[in-house]
Nucleic acid binder design. Structure first.
Lengths: 249, 249
DNA sequence: GAGTGGTCTAGACCACAGG
DNA sequence: CTGTGGTCTAGACCACTCT
């Protein structure tokens, strides 16, 4: 056995620790696109872990689109075009960072509301049950790019104020730390739509202009629905995503 | 060791074999949403495989959004709302099946073209290099729902005819079997846009109507770009996707 | 404390790619 | 033929959840 590791004295699993080392090397641009990595056996020896642990690190990075491997050929650095296209739940700020922009928001309204029949069905609560609604404009480099209309299922008595949200960098972080909001997975439904009068006013466009419409249901680690969010984005907004291998393996 | 298995005498890896058994049970509706599966140790014993093989099967299904697991709690059936939202490359026919609809197409044009500067850059070829362009209308239950304008990098001398495409159920299948086209991954870029005159005519809508615009670059197993496709869908079309856990693990 | 998933090891053999 | 990734095993211990 080795001494866990050097600087990252946290109890990080060894495969994630290894993945971080390799991932950092790649993100620093020290390895070219499609360049081969050392073989799994060599990595195992070099970092004093079992080959199976190396394989876990490799799979971990493959899932994230950082590297890919071919049977009998080797493991390689994924080209830049696919790196960083893996989506996460709080993807807006994420996306902004990837583009070198600054994500922002202007909260229009935060209020407790009673669940409508439509939303109650989606969130698995009874119509009339209390929800927290947060309506906001999303900004990118201080320019409005979209609208978010979110409805949260929060524990009774959870009180969120406008100033809290504005102080917090991330709404999700605030809800997670204060109210045990624990998003684990989300389902999104994208389509195109035309701007309504109100959308047009808020986004400073014309009524009828095209918008990217995204409906999202967020699920907890127990797969209970905890948020419904209706998002509308300007046509200049880009939603990047990565698609895995074919259905037949 | 056991006798591999009963009917599926193929040399399917044991973890996929196990995943198929469990997956079939779930898709047949024999297990309720969020119902707990037997523990990994029990599955290992029952199916006479090592626990590690069970874990591989579990991870395999987790990636596909079929099940999920919680540390110290157990493994559970993913709710129907998330099952089947994992996207694959040839997703159009896939989507159609999931909705109980029939995917179709009407090929407008298939012709060799010289790469424009814009497309050459994306496909990593030189401007003027030969590409195969396939322009078609996508149908769902015989109604037009979108336009696909695809540019393929194929081996020199590859000849594809209109009748071949119309006979083949899937264009991807045709290209894969005939010309070694081997898609492994794709990057998609979604946005909203307004219908041009030509789009409106083909889709039978008004100029300026909102469209869901999807640009895709498909990569081979060696991560070389092999297809660029510009897709435009009616606002009634839904693009469903699933998002994994947060960025912090 | 009992039971669960999560990590890790040290071997083994198979399947594929490339000279 | 050699080297690579892919599969599989039989243990071990840790970390978490629930009662």
């Amino acid at each position: 056995m080795m001494k866990i590791d050097d600087t990252t004295a946290l109890t990080l699993p060894r495969y994630k620790w290894l993945a971080n080392i390799i991932g950092t090397t790649i993100s620093q641009g020290l390895l070219a696109d499609n360049q081969a990595l050392p073989s799994e056996r060599e990595l195992a020896e070099r970092y004093e872990v079992s080959r199976d642990t190396v394989r876990k690190a490799v799979r971990y990075m493959e899932e994230r689109g950082i590297i890919y491997s071919g049977h009998g050929r080797g493991t390689f650095v994924a080209p830049a075009i696919v790196r960083g296209t893996t989506r996460f739940i709080d993807s807006f700020s994420q996306d902004a960072n990837n583009r070198g922009s600054v994500a922002g928001q202007r909260v229009l309204n935060v209020e407790p509301v009673a669940a409508s029949m439509a939303i109650a069905g989606l969130l698995n609560v009874r119509p009339g049950d209390p929800l927290l609604r947060i309506h906001r404009i999303r900004l990118m480099d201080n320019a409005a790019v979209g609208l978010h209309d979110a409805y949260f299922v929060l524990p009774p008595g959870a009180k969120v104020t406008l100033s809290q949200i504005e102080r917090a960098g991330s709404l999700y972080k605030l809800l997670t730390e204060k109210f045990g909001f624990a998003p684990a997975e989300a389902v999104e439904n994208l389509s195109a739509g035309a701007a309504e009068q109100e959308d047009a006013r808020l986004l400073n466009i014309q009524k009828g202009d095209p918008l990217l419409i995204c409906e999202r249901i967020t699920l907890s680690d127990r797969r209970e629905p905890i948020e419904y969010c209706l998002m509308k984005y300007l046509s200049s907004y880009r939603y990047k995503t990565r698609i895995a291998k074919r259905s037949g393996d």
